[in-house]
Design a protein around this nucleic acid. Sequence first.
RNA 1: GUCGGGGUGGCGAAAUUGGUAGACGCGCUACCUUGAGGAGGUAGUUCCCGUAAGGGAUUGGAGGUUCAAGUCCUCUCCCCGACACCA
Length: 1034
Amino acid sequence: MITNKILFMEEKTKYNPSEFESRMLALWEKEKVYSTNPQSSISNNKAYCLSMFPYPSGAGLHVGHVRIYTGTDVMARYFKMSGKDVLHPMGWDAFGLPAENAAIKAKKNPIDMVPGNIANFKKQMNMLGLSYDWNKEFSTTDPSYYKWTQWLFIQFFKTGLLYKKNTPIHFCPKCKTGLAEEEVLANGTHERCGTVIEKKILPQWIFRITAYAEQLLSDLKLLDWPKGILEMQRNWIGKKEGVIIKHTVKDLNIPIETFSAYPAWLFADTFIVIAPEHPLIKELVKGTKHEKDTNEFIEESRKISSQDRTADKFEKKGVFTGRYAQDPFNPGREMPIWLANFALMDFGTGIIRCSAHDVRDFEFAIKYKIQLEEVVKRTDPKLPINAHDNTGILVHSGPFTGKAINEVLIQDMKNWIVEQKIGRKETTYHLRDWIFSRQRYWGEPIPMVHCDSCEKKGNNSNILIIHGTWGSGEGNWFPWLRTYMNAAGVDTASPTLPDADHAKYDVRNQFLNNNFGEYLKSSSIIIGHSSGAGTALHLASQHKIDQLVLVAPVLKINEEYKKSLAKSFDQKTADALYDLYNDHPIDWELIKKNVRKITVVYGENDQYMPKDMRVFAEKVFEKENVHMLKGKAHFSSSSNDAKEQFELLQFIENKMVGGWTMIEENNLPLKLPYTSSYEPTDTGESPLSTIEGFKETICPVCGGAATRETDTMPNWAGSCWYFIRFAQSVIPAEAGIQAKTMREEWMAKMAHVPPVDWYLGGAEHAVLHLLYARFWVKALKDASLIDYPEPFLRLRNVGMVLAEDHRKMSKSWGNTINPDDVVAQYGADTLRMYEMFMAPFNMEIAWSTAALQGGHRFLKRVWALYMSRESIVDSRESDPELVNKLNKTIQKVGEDISQTKFNTAIAALMEFLNAYEANPKLSTEEAKKFIQIIAPFAPFMTEKIWRDIFHEKTSIHLSHWPVQTKVSVKNTVVKLPIQIQGKFRGVLILPTDALDEKQVEVAVLKDEVLSKYVSGKQYKLIYVKGKICNFVIQ
RNA sequence: GUCGGGGUGGCGAAAUUGGUAGACGCGCUACCUUGAGGAGGUAGUUCCCGUAAGGGAUUGGAGGUUCAAGUCCUCUCCCCGACACCA
């Protein structure tokens, strides 16, 4: 009998995770413990915790994945127990080169390979006890997901943010695809495969991320991100403020411009160099004796790869063009123009003014014996003073001679340059536009069609802007919009109307029809601003056009409004406008027939518009086409609205640019065709071009034969907005309201979900995914598709997990650790505990199987303690000191988790366990609390104890984070550290009511050890009451 | 070269505001226990001198501020990461 009982106890006492972990998983699934509250994503008490989602490789989870996912899981569990509405989803970033290359190797279609990999990842994630709500799961390769990625592509196309153009790109000869700037490493190799990149000119979809350079830079201040990542983004955007200097080439009268970020040194420049790729060179040397040398030099430079350029031994070389330019800073000085291989075509203007003060220029001048001048005294004539130091007293510097170089002086010089008309101020960025085409199979097909006949017929969209009263075609945001649209390949015009202040209907109408009658066609967009709307409306009644966009429009003028117009302008102007609207009435019905889409935009702070104008707009047009923009006024310089009106872009719908148009919305998704031959081609075209029946299609505009785009999107596309899809609310759409259009569906499900609160992942995405996603969010915000400026409010980086030998884990080294093996041997809780404990979350760590035992031991000790019933459940009395310590531990663990300081949280748990074991006196209620605060780290074991020992019916993971019990611990004594001469000499134990300086002094003098340092000596006391006391011997 | 992050025992690391440096864990040492296991317990463990009591040194190095510095300031060395002929 006795033996049996002992056996039973042993069985019960032994910590055997494999015996219960899988049962806990089943229990959680049955009880739907991790299902998300549908309100979570829109609750103002939400905590959106997200790990960077993985690309599901065939290799399965790495222990590095485990570290990120456990960290996020611990936070999600803690926030949930703290009463927050937690969103903690997981999905798959399965498009892209790695998956495709693996599939090619395995001779399978990636479509067939991905599901197996996902299943394996998912199995492993479940095994680890990660609290994902799998109802939120999706893969970027699901047509139901990439349908939206394609739809977003179309939205960006329509507004000119994405356009197709022949452009020199980085091309990976191994992967046979074009790449983005961010995918090329400093040594000129592809970040995925290490192959040296080539330059090629190919037609590419270009995403205008540079339009957002300034916002991407300035909004960094909104983010709680690691300093290093912020700095890397800042550097990558690379804003530089400087000046452009204008020159004229002697004898040729060709203007050339140079950029300088250091204006203080401009008076020293004596020669000019041009990048060998510069197109101007041919003109400079044409027909001269320098032509041959120059061509040879250009040819030679072309052969040097970017890899060689960055090498240490890169030799500065150049060749003289035989030409000179006048130096605007030193009248009479002629600057020889050279080609130089250190000049970069893609920085500044590709042309540089050079001086004795720049290291490279100096070296070059010495080599080719070019004359130098200096504007600050050099101590050693053989060495340059680096211009980037910006220090010294100027000489030979015109009006600035004798002045010290500082910020103020530099500003003065810039202003002087502008005043003298020598040049202008200029801001440049390192950021380049994002090449968005990949000549590969495994990506989202680009939902675009090219129609040759449309292109020839001139069916491209163009834009005519009509300005308002007392305005001009060069006012407000018109030049900005024109530059922006022209860059995307859209023709624009913004004529200044004759006598616009007082012009009546006839004058306006005649002028526009004479000059722009032929410009307007069925694919045209007319934009009318303010009272220009009247003219625009009349035009639209005379021409069939695609779109009419009315910005802050005047739509009618009654007597009262006429009076106010006369007051703010003059009577003649008011009369002219009255004529435009009333003497020549607007035919609303005809306009509606002539125009495919009419859009009206007002700013909510527009003080020039009578209140009923918008009401009227909603009456004559469809209500859904009348928009009110928050924080905007009259969209004019007079109301101080910014000139760059990105928000207006959303209302402009270019239908066709360069013969390209989008496929119709109800044909989305454009599915990736299934094929057996998807290897990259050698033609620079995507493999989709070889698939029969894919490329040929019908033009949505003219109905004739057309061809599809066959390139695909880069693997970063899907991850630019996946967090929005995860957070998608299910409320209106799935409650029975059927959205008519994709925009309606988006607005209902995705427009109102908030950004990610906690984003955890590796630092390797600093300028790739993290920059791209920020860019999309800004573009989406300007398109009114979401309403926040940044996707990831807090970012925390995870440190890499190295192998035990401190090298990277790699199959070829044979030093990998498989999480499956660790879980099989020690249980998932041990693996989680160890990875959270061994180092601060963001630090690199080397795996240590020995240290893993530490976490295991902790769990075993907790287990053993709670399994010995008499010490836990049967004890009624709590020791106040221990409860006090427990309170502090509850507090610390919570605080540490919310600061991603998991290692110290666990240290605190261990510290408490030490105290608890030494003196196991806690009531049942208090004993439960300790288990609860371990729960985020070790979800399996704590659930088991919660149910078996405490007989709880609902999951510990749904329980509330414990509150601290008030205990009165009478601290009757205080340990007071004593220093003598600043050196620690011992601790005095003093009653709490005897802590006055005098009492401390007496106690020290009485103390056998301490007294010998001070007795009989002159000393001064520095006493921080109750904290420390220092005796300073005089 | 520029920018960012670091440097604390044999190892991974702690340290609110400047206030007992080394919490917690690993490892190690001695002893105990056992079902002989990758087990458990107790005590010890920054280094040097000392049987001990005790003393001295100590947060990469040098200086400084302070009653008091891992923490603040100046200079300097080393490691890691990112960017780089950027005018």
